[in-house]
Write a protein that binds this DNA or RNA. Structure first.
Lengths: 341, 341
DNA sequence: TTGAAAGCGCTAACAA
DNA sequence: TTGTTAGCGCTTTCAA
């Protein structure tokens, strides 16, 4: 059996409470006493039991992180942002993959509730507002990141995808393109709908008519991107294409390659994304990169403020999306890839 | 305050213990009683406190997952394998990023110890054997994945990288290449050294002399891969190159591109990796793909066996690495990318 | 089949 | 500055 606080107390010749105080840096303990306790801790290789501590103190020093899947670079980068903030405060993070399934999300929420996490950072699933509200009613601090459900009032940290897609569209328009197609994710929640909104608004402002046949939506997967692009090319050949999701872009670029089309010479491509490899392998894209790490980091920061008791109305933070300068036609030179790849 | 077991007991008109038994599916409870308890639980929206339960039962239903960084597709895929196994058993996973820093690893180990996790899946850092042994001495079940420290006796699940690199080298030799360079990660621990070993052994078996100038080692990063490849090309032009790490490969491919060399027409490239995007964007590579998901999955499975009390000597499992067929020169056609991208 | 008592290891509140 | 007492919410053990 591992040493307990009682063992340490006996060895140091003090009471339980004194040991507790030394460990938590609490209150006043005489340096001599502290030293004795420290030594006993060392000798016994004592590691405090967080479980018992949490049970009594009602604070666990743990966070829940609920996202679609850890097996995807974007979510993962957000996760890293959350993790770094947590680590800096001595917090540990429970990782949960919802797979965008509300039922799975619900099960995880119960698990997190039962484990008495101090707060939850969540990339909510489309149908999850009610169950998240249920959790919220139990005084559990929640911060939404990347996505924001309309009917769930919590802090949220997101990328300004509307501006991102608008920026891409504006660049494509500035290059003289007018038949600009849009490939996006089919869902009614933010941010997917924001991308489409940014595209439409920019086209409208420029007075360029939007051909509904040029707007294709589907699931956020490379397969879908491939299929949609192939379908589009069967019908027409747009001058440019604005893509609202990196995974769609991966597939779409393949379809273009198979069709023998060069980017940016034969067709201009702009995409919102967060896939470093995409950047590395297709330097001829116009890109709007979402600040994934920052989203996670700020999300966790906000959560910690709530845990600390901050009691102001929820905010919706929109982080700027970096739209790259438009590459010259024919200039397919790669940048040197970085560690993020 | 949230409802406790006592509240449920009162409402159902039974004792605490009976509620506990219903929740844990324990022993014999009369169906009528069970129904009454269930109803009370429902009405009070009672969620059991795992903390209190764990404190008493000495089981937390939590796992620690300690890996270099979650911001990298390979580790992330392993993580997903672990997570899926955990979820299936109602376990939650603490995610920890060591950044390959033994000090950080040590801090996390203490945190996991304090949180009384039931077991740990770890991708160990090079200098971490002693501290992991310390944890092991406390009866904490540990499984190493992907890497295996020589001086740490635990179960380990890894990819057979030696065979992978050997397979790549053999393919390159079969294509008639003999000046085959090797780019790998500079470290003395498995699996990096296994890759180099597989390369050397295969060259030796084929009776092809190894030119030490063709072996370049460095950190596992795209920048390093770029630098090493550029350095190599400045000195010589090998017929083929065997790469022991996907991140090195990403950088190396850029250097080749900048040098105006086409793969596989101008130079053959084989690489051990686990980067789906690499596969998608560079279909002309010969690849040895590590089964990352399986590594995580089997690692967790083994850990659960240990948690359940399995008391046999540690095993070292080597999972097969899939070496792709060699692409024809000039056949640069992409496969359709899959969800894993 | 059910319940009463004890206590997991710790911290909060109070007292000295 | 230090200690005593009580109890967090649950499971275990023993008894009925």
């Amino acid at each position: 059996m591992a040493a307990t606080m009682r063992d340490v107390a006996e060895r140091a010749g003090v009471s339980l409470v004194t040991v507790s105080r030394v460990i938590n840096g609490h209150a006043s303990v005489r340096p001599v006493t502290r030293a004795r306790v420290r030594r006993a801790i060392e000798e016994l290789q004592y590691v405090p039991d967080q479980l018992a501590s949490s049970l009594r103190s009602r604070q666990t020093g743990t966070l829940g992180l609920l996202l679609p899947t850890i097996a995807n670079a974007f979510w993962t980068t957000i996760a890293r942002g959350v993790e770094d903030e947590a680590e800096a405060r001595g917090y540990s993070v429970f990782l949960c993959n919802s797979d965008d399934d509300p039922a799975k999300e619900s099960r995880y929420l119960d698990a997190l509730l039962g484990r008495r996490v101090d707060g939850i950072v969540v990339v909510p699933t489309a149908g999850g507002a009610a169950q998240l509200r249920r959790v919220q009613q139990r005084q559990m601090p929640i911060v939404q990141v990347h996505r924001r459900l309309d009917d769930l009032e919590t802090d949220s940290i997101r990328a300004d995808n509307r501006s991102g897609a608008a920026g891409l569209t504006a660049q494509l328009l500035a290059l003289g393109c007018s038949r600009i197609a849009f490939l996006g994710v089919e869902t009614t929640i933010s941010p997917a709908r924001d991308c489409l909104g940014g595209y439409k608004a920019t086209m409208a402002e420029a007075g360029v008519p939007i051909d509904p046949a040029l707007i294709l939506l589907g699931r956020a997967s490379p397969e879908t991107g491939y299929a949609l692009m192939a379908e589009l090319l069967r019908k027409t050949h747009p001058e440019a294409i604005c893509i609202g999701n990196g995974r769609l872009a991966v597939g779409a670029l393949h379809a273009l390659r198979e069709a023998g089309l060069q980017v940016p010479d034969d067709i201009r491509v702009g995409t919102v994304h967060n896939i470093a490899a995409l950047d590395a392998f297709s330097p001829s894209l116009i890109t709007a990169v979402q600040p994934a790490y920052e989203i996670g980091k700020l999300g966790a920061q906000r959560l910690f403020e709530r845990i600390a008791g901050l009691d102001t109305p929820p905010v919706d933070v929109l982080l700027p999306v970096a739209v790259s300068a438009c590459p010259l036609a024919g200039a397919g030179e790669a940048r040197i890839p970085t560690a993020a790849d």
